[in-house]
């Protein structure tokens, strides 16, 4: 279980409070959707969980399958099974996709005491996953995210998620900037991982349309640094009709 308890966090540089008491428990196999207005602190939640150093946790705690997450470095959290799909994936000029993916995969395998995966086996695996995400092989030779369209970047995030098979995945607005076809492909990618029942999802989104493809078990409304309302799909529908102000006020 990814267990977030009363989490408060601020911006390290100016002590501005952003997260103001977030509590949320995610079990493997569950899909939690988090919806909320711009600037509410949703991305910050993702970053804080992933271990970005620009933020300081002031109080609260987070455990991942019993381990104290906040005690671990970002890279150790990832190898332990946490994955963050970035709202704005980062360009890495000079780093080619194939070697990047294999290096990440092997870092995780090393952690689990497994042998590194050789290039041939890796390529076969990567190509199979890419085919299901509608990505052509030539992505492997390109530099990570350099010159990628918005949709291509998000697909690469989903490819990384599929290959790393995390225990807990946070998807930060993976749906924004996607056309309807790309959205469907990305959602199918998530659903394939979900079917295995071993990954818990925290899906941050702005729009209800993603939830038409990925049916969440829980929907949370996030406003001003914390979850203000939780429930099922009916909340997403209410948000669509009444907007955040209506739902938050109710």
């Amino acid at each position: 279980m990814l267990d977030i308890k009363e989490l408060y966090a601020e911006l390290a540089e100016d002590n501005k409070a952003i997260l103001k008491g977030v509590s949320l428990a995610i079990k493997p196999g569950e899909v939690h959707a988090v919806m909320g207005p711009n600037g509410a602190g949703k991305s910050t939640l993702g970053y804080v969980l992933a271990g970005r150093e620009d933020y300081t946790v002031t109080t609260g705690n987070v455990t991942m399958d019993g381990q104290d997450l906040l005690e671990m470095d970002a890279d150790a959290r990832a190898r332990a099974g946490l994955f963050l799909a970035f709202q704005y994936p980062v360009e890495l000029p000079g780093v080619n996709v194939a070697s990047f993916l294999r290096t990440c995969l092997n870092a995780k395998r090393a952690e689990n005491g497994e042998e590194p995966m050789n290039a041939a086996v890796f390529l076969k695996l990567a190509r199979a996953e890419m085919a299901t995400l509608g990505m052509s092989d030539n992505f492997l030779q390109r530099f990570v995210n350099v010159g990628f369209s918005g949709g291509e970047k998000k697909r690469l995030e989903m490819l990384q998620m599929a290959l790393l098979a995390p225990k807990y995945a946070i998807l930060d607005e993976t749906d924004s900037g996607l056309d309807i076809d790309a959205l469907r492909i990305v959602a199918e990618g998530v659903n394939r991982v979900r079917e295995k029942g071993t990954t818990g999802f925290l899906i941050i989104t702005h729009y209800q349309r993603l939830l038409d493809y990925i049916k969440p078990d829980f929907v949370h409304v996030f406003a001003d640094g914390k979850i203000v309302k939780s429930g099922g799909m009916e909340i997403a529908e209410a948000l669509e009709k009444e907007g955040y102000s209506g739902v938050v006020a109710a």
Binding site: D75, G94, F100
Partner: peptide
């Protein structure tokens, strides 16, 4: 860039090495 690589499980030293190598790779 460093955080992106670390968020994918690469230790700091490996991430740095990869970025340095990338800078020269072109």
């Amino acid at each position: 860039q460093l955080f992106y690589l670390k968020a994918r499980g690469l230790p700091e030293e490996v991430a740095r090495g990869l970025l340095v190598e990338a800078f020269m790779a072109a």
